[in-house]
Design a protein around this nucleic acid. Structure first.
Length: 129
DNA sequence: CTTCTTACA
DNA sequence: TGTAAGTA
């Protein structure tokens, strides 16, 4: 598929798909006309990339983690590089901290939303969200 | 009409 | 990340 379809199916802008390619996160083939040609499995791969990046993981790190997520759910590690393990451990810890941080913010926002609902009177129904 | 690259904001 | 330009 071409970039437009992949963008639509993943929700990731074509601009970012080209960017991911520059970062070495994905390597689509090229059509005779020069257009990028993405394989089906890249849909899943891009969604995983977006998940990692959205979690705040720098793309350079994502590039290291990606090969571990080799398509299927089974994690296949070819090279058990010692440096990578340590890197991932520290990244995971950062994720844990970030999750705690986000959890606090989410709860704060929830409280705020409740306050808004409360101020709008109890007779009004909330049909929209 | 979609995509490509490069470059600027 | 969005957008403009000039192509293929």
């Amino acid at each position: 598929m071409r970039i437009g379809e992949l963008a639509a199916r993943t929700g990731v802008p074509a601009r970012m798909l080209r960017y991911y390619e520059q970062q070495g996160l994905i390597t689509p083939h090229r059509l005779s006309n020069g257009y990028r040609d993405y394989d089906e499995y890249l849909v899943d791969r891009v969604q995983k990339i977006r998940g990692l990046v959205d979690a705040g993981i720098p793309t350079r790190i994502v590039a290291d983690i990606l090969p571990c997520l080799h398509q299927s759910r089974t994690i296949v590690v070819h090279d058990a590089e010692p440096g990578l393990r340590q890197l991932l451990v520290s990244e995971r810890d950062r994720m844990t901290e970030k999750i705690a941080f986000l959890t606090q913010n989410r709860d704060a926002i929830t409280a705020y939303i409740d306050a808004i609902d409360a101020s709008h009177g109890h007779t009004r129904e909330r049909l929209a969200s």
